[in-house]
Write a protein that binds this DNA or RNA. Structure first.
Lengths: 203, 203
DNA sequence: ATGATGTTTGACATTTTTGTTAAACATAGC
DNA sequence: GCTATGTTTAACAAAAATGTCAAACATCAT
């Protein structure tokens, strides 16, 4: 295995990632991916056998990335409030670099579900992680730092407030006639707003 | 023009709509659409000339629908709070029947932007609508019913809290092992939660 | 019943996209 | 320099998807 080996393979994977998750071009052709990577199209077959295998690999990577992101919130030895602050920060930055990651995963999962190709895999693991997080949330609700509700509702609140403006970026940049800097500024402002929304208002 | 004319045309459009917006199959082939509509594939060409034209038409319809949905909030002669209540109700019901509508529109718009095929069209109109809504929001902020922030942030809060659980439905149904009824129940609960989140907490 | 009109169909042509293969190429070890 | 190894390329084959067309079909007015 020479140096070039992993290089080209990686270049292709990165190009695909960019097309899918940054540009949202979910049905990019092999030619488009090859062009974006600056390599011969047949190299996709050489390294990944088929278009599908490449797709699956990139998706698997994305899943792993996302899970890592989700787990980050637990890894820190901080009080709940600071953890949430950290999480929001990490999540927003990730989402800014890969705005279409979540949409892509949902689209993929959905199509697999329709075709009844049900990918179980780390399902159990995810559920365990979520249950753990639910426990934390419930204890915070007891403490009174956050409003009482079904834990999943809290998770949805948190993730939706973060994710929506990222996914909808092209629309809102356009309609509101903003440049990237202005948009980024709005997202910065947003961090505080989200914090104040998910925590109970101090009376 | 016989009865069958508009019938088949409509059947095809509905089938396409269903594939795109309900199942999330954004890159469905003409054959798949024809099968879903229960008609011969060539009829798509007969009625819509090309696959692309059909896509454009359905997207235009979707835009119109979405705009109507957005305008609904203004059409009622109610106080702000009740208007929001109505809006949430209508939006959630719409989103339940067409969960992929927004995602589809974003994906489409994004791809058009990348290819520099910039569809201006009713842009101005949308902006005017939004400005009007911004004015209302600002006046509510003055009154103190909602927290002070950039108006777009309020809009994002409202829409994200509504839209996310719909778009992510396949993932969460799966991970949390819920059936449609249970999921619907969570969405019902959600209406109140969203209301309490976007309005200032009574002290 | 006939013909005019619009609809539906299957056969075919074209285009687009993917996958394969053999030869050319590069490079490291001998 | 030569060979063994893995990499890259272009030419080709195969498959998938779209679009066209003429003939078959249905329906309605005359």
């Amino acid at each position: 295995m020479t140096k070039k080996d992993t290089e080209t393979e990686e270049v292709i994977k990165q190009a695909a990632k960019h097309l899918f998750f940054v540009e949202g071009r979910f049905n990019a052709t092999t030619q488009e991916i090859a062009d974006a990577a600056g390599v011969n199209r047949t190299l996709l077959n050489y390294y990944f056998r088929s278009r599908n295998k490449l797709f699956e690999l990139v998706l698997k990577d994305a899943r792993f990335h996302f899970k890592k992101r989700m787990r980050f919130v637990f890894s820190l030895d901080l009080d709940f409030r600071s953890k949430m602050e950290q999480f929001i920060d990490v999540y927003l930055n990730e989402a800014i670099t890969y705005p279409y990651l979540e949409t892509y995963m949902v689209a993929q999962l959905n199509q697999q579900l329709i075709k009844h190709e049900i990918p179980l895999e780390h399902e159990v693991e995810v559920r365990e992680d979520m249950d753990k997080f639910f426990k934390v949330i419930e204890s915070e609700m007891e403490k009174g730092t956050i409003e009482k509700m079904a834990p999943i509702q809290f998770v949805w609140n948190l993730l939706s407030l973060l994710s929506f403006p990222i996914v909808m970026k092209p629309i809102y940049k356009r309609v509101m006639d903003l440049d990237d800097k202005a948009y980024f500024q709005l997202l910065e402002e947003r961090k505080k707003i989200i914090m104040s929304m998910i925590f109970k208002k101090q009376v």
